[in-house]
Design a protein around this nucleic acid. Sequence first.
DNA 1: TCGAAAGACTTTTTT
DNA 2: AGTCTTTCGA
Length: 671
Amino acid sequence: MKLNPGQANAVKHISGPCLVLAGAGSGKTRVITLKIAHLVRQCGYQARHIAAVTFTNKAAREMKERVGQTLGRKEARGLIVSTFHTLGLTILKREVTTLGMKAGFTLFDDQDSRALISELTEKEYDGDKDQINLLLNQISRWKNDLILPPQAIKMAESGGEQILAMLYERYQRHLTAYNALDFDDLILLPTLLLKQNEQVRQRWRDRIRYLLVDEYQDTNTSQYELVKLLVGERARFTVVGDDDQSIYSWRGAQPKNLALLQQDFPSLEVVKLEQNYRSTGCILNAANILIANNDHIFDKRLFSELGYGERLRVLYAKDEEHEAERTVAELLSHKFMKRTSYKDYAILYRGNHQSRLIEKSLMTNRIPYKISGGTSFFSRAEIKDMMSYLRLLVNHDDDNAFLRIVNVPKREIGPATLEKLGNYANMRGISLFAASFELGLEQHLTGRGLASLQRFTRWMVELADFAEKGETIEAVRQLVRDINYEEYLYDSSPSPKAAEMRMKNVSELYRWITGMLEGDDLDEAMTLPEVVTRLTLRDMMERNEGDDESDQVQLMTLHSSKGLEFPYVFMIGMEEGLLPHQSSIDEENVDEERRLAYVGITRAQKELSFIVCRERRQFGESFRPEPSRFLYELPQDDLIWEGKTQKSKEEKKKTGMAHLAAMKAMLNKDK
DNA sequence: TCGAAAGACTTTTTT
DNA sequence: AGTCTTTCGA
């Protein structure tokens, strides 16, 4: 397949900074892939001097695969394709000594961070969730803006801010004590390091000589800073982005980084990709008209040459149960008529909880499905337990992990023992694990408690020694055997069937771990500390080879659908309050919700259906939501509202108003 | 110390 | 409504 002029431009421009404004379905992954191939084959770059950065693991995997196909395994060797966070982790891992950190640090996921904050603020907040969230968000914002605790304290303008900044400092001190990092540190620390240390900066600029960034509109301040530091004055990089698909501002993403690029790099070459190769004209037109209601940094107009296609449908359901049943029924009859496969269908929704009823309905109809995204696997108790064991094995100072599993399965180390241990550790300013070995502890803790505790910590130390001698896989195996987790599961689960499920999850995790420790032809073998941090990053999920073969309906949130495409798409829950979500309406941030709808619509290749519930239950209360305003903003001629041949007065008024708003938006844009 | 039962709280999105 | 937490009784 040939490149269109825009794509060719984007691939060939390699001498300086390059921004590719890539509309949905305009073939940007192809551009990135071919550009990497071009760099290697025509421009004399070694693959190991090129890095491509994405935001999700899924995208990274896919890109790795695509490059592997284009270039071949050998030529692609050493190429860095990873998420921003994994790149940060890679840098940190190489520079641990420069940073003065102990190797084998623990990565805290957001639950760990929340637990820590909640513990640290017990006096101030007493477990108040709102306040804890506020603090967590503030800390995240500080870190994303490269502000460390001392600066935060200095900058505080009110007493309230002062307190938050002090708590930030306390949080950071405790992280250090646990030898732990949080997600934001994976960007913050490398950025600061590169900023301050000339030598390290040179090292990485030499390593990464050409940088490509996908989904650039999702970068936050510290990520952009990291990009700038990595590329230096030579500015050999390509970033690809689309401001209409910016759906992560709540996480600090700054779509204005697209515009900043032009200021920071005056020689920036801007390439627009406006031909869509994915969707029918009807779907694309709907998407274009919807998004015209938003403001734009760059103007673009997507077009398709795939023909008009089928009109979009709006289906009604009585309530959310009926919604699930209808969606599945529609899917089934469609599949039957068109002789398609299950994997040609995607069901998209706003919030993870919406998947449950759909799942149920699919299950009763014996339809194979796959839910991607969602935290389910790693938030399962048994997985959290096993991960805590591994974390503690790698980093004895990880108190969070320690507390989680010290008495799971039961080891006669109860709350009383732990409280005394905690007090002592606190007093001495050391970790719980370290405290268990101190002689001074005997004054506070005696007899059985102390004996059980030390039996546990000694066992852990022995196991860690064993692992460090290189017998990692054997050590992990022994750990699972020693704790006799299976028996514990059967004892603690409500039913043998549940225990079996849980044990299956544990085995799955075990397989992943051993697989990562051994490595394969695509990925190098990793050390245990690496494996543990990578697992926390959720980096590795579906490495099941048979995945492409398996024929399953795809279920996912609108957020995690970004970057994917499906022939037939159902968007469920198209109601005010859900999409746009109520909290976004309250915060007057409907634009982002509109982009979310835009992302959903542009996933569809051939046909698209919306489902609206007439009635919905929330917290047991039922209410009657309005259809989403976005449905009224779409071009009504391309839309079939189920069961309505004639528009009612109400609706005419609404669509009229929506069109008026769209026209106004377009007029404003021209000014 | 453990399991059942009542009670609280939930639903925005993710590395 | 469903899930996670806390509490109370054995």
